[in-house]
Each structure stands twice: as C-alpha cells, then as structure tokens.
Write a protein that binds this DNA or RNA. Structure first.
Length: 260
DNA sequence: ATGACTAACGGAGTTAGA
C-alpha cells in the first residue's frame, strides 16, 4: 500500500497538477493539506474518476485537509481532540482497509506559528501537545498507523539548506523541534528521513527569490509510522520533480510503501 | 532586507503562508 501526503496549496489552483501526479505516482492513499476549500466546493468528481473515495475537512479560504483512498474508508474522525474552541480545519483521521489489513491514516496540517511569541506561536505549541496526546492514544491501538502531513517543523539543521536563515522562524524554534522529537520519542519512525538520509532532502521551496533554482529548501512534510507500520515499510521517497512543473505547489509529495 | 511570490476573497487591497 502506497501512502502519500502533499500540501497542494489550493485544490482549485492545483487540480490539474494534482491529477497529473496521481496518474503518474498512483498512490493507494493520499493525504492532502491546504485544500483551501469548503467541503461542498471540493472538486471530488475528477478524483472519483481516478478510483478514489474522497473525504474532506475544509473551511473557507485557507487550511483544509483531505484523505483520498482507493480502498474502503471507515471510522472517520474530523478534527484534533483536546480543544472544542479550535475551529481551524487541520486534522483528519480514518481507517483504510484492504483484504490484507488495515491502516489508521492521519492527514494533518500543523500550524505555521509565525511570528515567534505571538498567539499563533502558542497555538502551534498547544496544537503539538494535543497531537502528542492523540498519537500516544493511537499507539495503544497496536495497529499500523501513518501520521502524514505538513508538520511545519524543520527537525534538524540537516533538514534545511541554510539553517541559519531559519533561526528566528517558528518552524525551527527549539520549542517546535522539541515538540516534534517528543512525537518521535513516543515510538514513531520518521520514514522519509530513514530512507532518504543525508543533506538536500527537502519537501518545500519558497516561491520567492529563486529558492527552487538554488535548491534552497527545507524538509517539513513528514510521515511518522507506528512500530506496526514501520515493520511493514518497504520504501519511502520525495517526489521533488513536481516542484519544477508548471504552476507548482511550493510543497512536493512524500510517500511510503507498506506491505499491506 | 519581514522585501522578494502565490492563492483566496471579492471585485481593490488584505490576509496568510513559511
């Protein structure tokens, strides 16, 4: 089972790009972020035509996540538990089943958190604490779990071309990186890092200042696997070539292949 | 150098991204 995640930066603007990549990469499950669409406006038909069941959790104008799946989808959970006042559409969870087994799949869009010291930054950190609680509960299920999405965290200096340029950014703050390590230390496996070691493994390049041309990127899109999923990990990768396409997202897809 | 792009909303500039 191939599970991918991609922050497409607007489904309306990215529909053709997304469909082109789906035809080439042919993932079984796709987690989308920043669909920037309410559920009723999401263009589900072209995805259904490619064989996907479509589950969305959107809102007007920004944010919004989705899960596309070629096999059956059950037990959908909308929103990250822990704060009834949080109205931002950033979290979607569902069980994807085949004849060979089931995987609990999360599509998340973690808050950016800039600028440091603002309410947005404290929202990011509290959101990550809620995520830690949820991911701990998921481990207790003792089943394959793939927590995929745009984490908006640069885990280590190796995950940026110019780490010094991010020292005053919420994505690279010690608090953000510690919170990410706490997720790993629950017992999750950073699949893309493990299978794409070394420098220059990036998933985001800014639209500005020729970042793509200079490979001035960062690695902020991650797939964390529970032990039961990591045991089934065959391969993982980053589809960086999509960043060079016409009308690209500023993020590229990352994916894992599991024996399920 | 908080600039540089891009998308959504709305119908001109503002908000948000990272």
């Amino acid at each position: 089972m191939k599970i991918a995640t991609w922050n497409i930066n607007g489904v309306k603007a990215r529909i053709e790009t997304t469909l082109t990549w789906l035809r080439e990469a042919n993932p079984d499950v796709v987690c989308l972020q920043e669909i920037k669409s309410i559920d009723s406006n999401f263009p589900a038909e072209p995805f259904r035509d490619l064989g996907y069941q479509v589950t969305t959790h959107g809102q007007k104008g920004f944010n919004g996540v989705a899960i596309l799946s070629k096999s059956s989808v059950e037990d959908v959970m909308i929103g990250l538990p822990g704060d009834d006042d949080d109205v931002q559409a950033r979290y979607l969870e569902a069980t994807v089943s085949t004849a060979n087994g089931a995987v609990r799949v999360v599509s998340l869009y973690l808050p950016n958190g800039n600028p440091i010291g603002s309410e947005k930054f404290s929202y990011k950190l509290s959101w990550m604490m809620r995520l830690e609680a949820r991911m701990k509960a998921l481990l207790a299920e003792e089943m394959p779990v793939a927590v995929a999405g745009d984490y908006n965290v640069i885990p280590t200096p190796e995950d940026a071309k110019r780490p010094q340029a991010w020292t005053n950014d919420a994505l690279f703050q010690p608090e953000s990186r510690t919170a990410f390590r706490r997720l790993i230390n629950l017992g999750y496996y950073d699949a893309v890092r493990a299978t794409a070691p070394g420098p220059d493994q990036y998933t985001f390049w800014d639209y500005q200042a020729g970042a793509w041309q200079k490979n001035d990127g960062i690695r902020i899109d991650h797939i964390l696997l529970s032990p039961q999923a990591a045991d089934r990990l065959d391969s993982a990768g980053i589809d960086r070539e999509t960043r060079g396409w016409e009308k690209p997202s500023d993020h590229v897809p990352v994916w894992v292949e599991l024996t399920i």
